[in-house]
Design a protein around this nucleic acid. Structure first.
Lengths: 202, 202
DNA sequence: CGCGTGATTGAAACCCTTCAAGTTTAGTGG
DNA sequence: CCACTAAACTTGAAGGGTTTCAATCACGCG
């Protein structure tokens, strides 16, 4: 009994902002929904991409590529997350980041004007959206704090606690990239933790 | 010819959102302004502090203290910046961060409800505020990307480019803390850069 | 089955930290 | 205005956590 496209987005809005049926009926006709395949690239550096994605199902990833060709994952975007390049969406300038698809996904494509429109239709959405932005800032600050202060091991432990399900859906080397360490280091950290765990049991 | 208290906040709002005189007159009576002295602690871990600060003049700092007693600076807040614990302000939960005063400052103290009030008075403020939040997120993402990918030297170079005036107002060891390196490392980085610069000149 | 991708492991190298000492700077009170 | 002290910055040597590079192993998929 799978939900229709847009239904999940609706559920989300209702939950977060108490969106009413009437409001939803006004919004619905303009929603742009898109099915995207694993591996697809949605945003790439150099171009301005003035849209956000809301992930109904699946998993996206927001990352940069340094001059040595190494990837650095700034954010994962699983179900019920927004992701997008704020550069393009709000300043119209080209982005320096990539967004691509880690699992076959369905996303809702929103632009700045559409969000403003929902906000004018639904004041409660407006408020909820601001709360979301504040919360996003909070999470980013915590992440920065972690990158400033934590060792590889601490980073990994906090990651598996915060995003237990992602550890199953994402290859290890991507988690390493998210944590700011190499895949080799993560592998060693995991081995060390596993050994400690075993020793404790005996 | 110094500006009165609140005038700078007003200038800011006018510039960012085209606030009108009438709107300002409605907001003004409720503004809470505060003079704070260098060294004063405004927020500390364990308590919930549901306010934001807008810095009219001076410099604040938002940081954490790890279990070894080391400080990690998440954000500087010079003139025209907002700073506050999003935990307290939006969830009512206790914070894990400190905010203290680096230079004698005048700040405006805002709570969530006050911001909502300004937003209901001035739609343009509402829009501007959302833009500010988006921009803040953008900056935090860039910072994360830097912490994930850049060496000590690259971090410092990007810092002095982004915040040239802060390098004069903030002791070096705090910049090191912001960059996620030790003061000693920063000192060595600076020496190396200075030597390179000299060699280039000859 | 074989290929490619991801995970593991080892050894060496490297960047940064740590610790300790010395130098400079800035602030304060006599 | 100098003297004194504390804080900030510098410098060196040793150490440690991570990275790098290379090789090997494990697994899924065409």
């Amino acid at each position: 009994m799978e939900k229709l496209q847009n239904e999940l987005f609706r559920d989300y809005l209702v939950k977060k902002s108490g969106l009413t049926d009437v409001e939803w009926q006004q919004i619905l006709p303009e929603l742009k929904c898109r099915e995207v395949k694993k591996g697809e690239v949605l945003v790439e550096p150099g171009v301005s991409f003035p849209y956000f994605f809301f992930v109904e199902k699946g998993l996206l990833r927001f990352y940069s590529l340094d001059k040595d060709g190494k990837e650095h994952i700034v954010q994962f975007a699983p179900e019920n997350w927004f992701v997008g390049d704020r550069n393009g969406a709000y300043c119209g300038t080209p982005t320096e980041f990539w967004i691509d698809v880690l699992e076959d996904s369905t996303v809702i494509v929103l632009d700045k004007y559409f969000i403003e429109k929902i906000e004018s239709i639904s004041p409660s959405f407006r408020k909820a959206n601001e709360g979301l932005l504040q919360n996003h800032i909070r999470l980013l600050q915590q992440r920065i704090n972690m990158l400033l202060s934590a060792t590889a091991e601490q980073r990994y432990l906090s990651f598996i606690q915060l995003y237990p399900n992602l550890t199953l859906r994402v290859p290890q080397w991507m988690i390493a990239s998210y944590l700011g360490i190499t895949p080799e280091s993560l592998s060693r950290v995991r081995r060390k933790l596993a050994e400690q765990y075993k020793r404790k049991k005996n």
